[in-house]
């Protein structure tokens, strides 16, 4: 675990399927900045994200490297990459309460029931959800769920964030608010963020470079 923020690098990434080239990517995301990958559906945005996170379907072939700081992630299993992943759906575990969801994500290195609980309470406080620990996720509003999902991702102390259209299911009114929160937190923690979207507003809010994938 290095204290230094790391840069996320995609070096000569090329994903093919049955000999056909699906996409190529070669860029770096600096700490505290967000790069947006845009493209129409079918252009392989989600495939790129799956490759980065380590979930590429065996039907695809990939070459190139993914680096985080000095580490080469390309051959690491998904659970060793420490990339925070957020999807369209918040995927909160319905069988655990809000605190349970965050405790699941909190590293085991934080020991002791009291210490763990106070870390979780602090995280909830950070997004204005003090006292929500004992709530059933099903009783939360969409905006509250999105904030819990964000904190669940962050409390695991990821080294970078990968976002797969995470705002597209939110109401218009909530969207901007949650978007600002996510990018603000990522900037404050100096995390490199890779956002995949087809929404221009998302890309504008991310504020960083935009990489376009063409359907090849």
């Amino acid at each position: 675990m290095s204290g230094q923020p790391d840069c996320l690098r995609l070096e000569g990434v090329r994903i093919t399927r049955g000999g056909e080239v699906l996409l190529g990517a070669d860029f770096a995301v600096a700490p505290g900045t967000a790069t947006t990958v845009m493209g129409p559906s079918g252009s392989g945005k989600s495939t790129l994200l799956a490759f980065l996170a380590g979930f590429l379907d065996p039907a695809f072939m990939a070459e190139g490297r993914v680096r985080l700081g000095d580490d080469d992630l390309t051959r690491l299993p998904p659970q060793a990459r420490r990339l925070g992943l957020m999807f369209q759906d918040d995927l909160l575990f319905p069988h655990l309460d809000v605190a349970g969801n965050l405790l699941f994500a909190l590293p085991a290195a934080v020991r002791g029931r009291a210490a763990r609980r106070s870390a979780v309470d602090a995280a909830l406080g950070e997004v204005g959800l003090e006292g929500f620990g004992d709530r059933d996720p099903a009783t939360l509003s969409g905006g509250q769920r999105a904030r819990v999902a964000l904190m669940r991702t962050l409390i695991a102390r990821p080294r970078a964030l990968l976002l797969d259209e995470p705002f597209s299911r939110l109401d218009r009114s909530l969207r901007g608010q949650v978007r600002d929160l996510v990018f603000g937190v990522a900037r404050a923690r100096r995390l490199p963020v890779l956002l995949v979207t087809h929404d221009e507003e998302d890309a504008a809010a991310a504020g960083g470079p935009v990489v376009s994938l063409r359907a090849m």
């Binding site: 659970q79 060793a80 992943l85 999807f87 575990f93 699941f104 991702t153 695991a156």
Partner: peptide, 28 residues
């Protein structure tokens, strides 16, 4: 059910396949 998506979440949080499945997918 969305077992595959949940498995991705648990793995990205650092969980091994089996532990992630038993604690997050199996209960549902």
């Amino acid at each position: 059910g969305g077992g595959a998506a949940t498995a991705m979440v648990t793995a990205s949080l650092g969980y091994g396949r089996v532990t992630g499945f038993l604690l997050a997918v199996l209960p549902r």
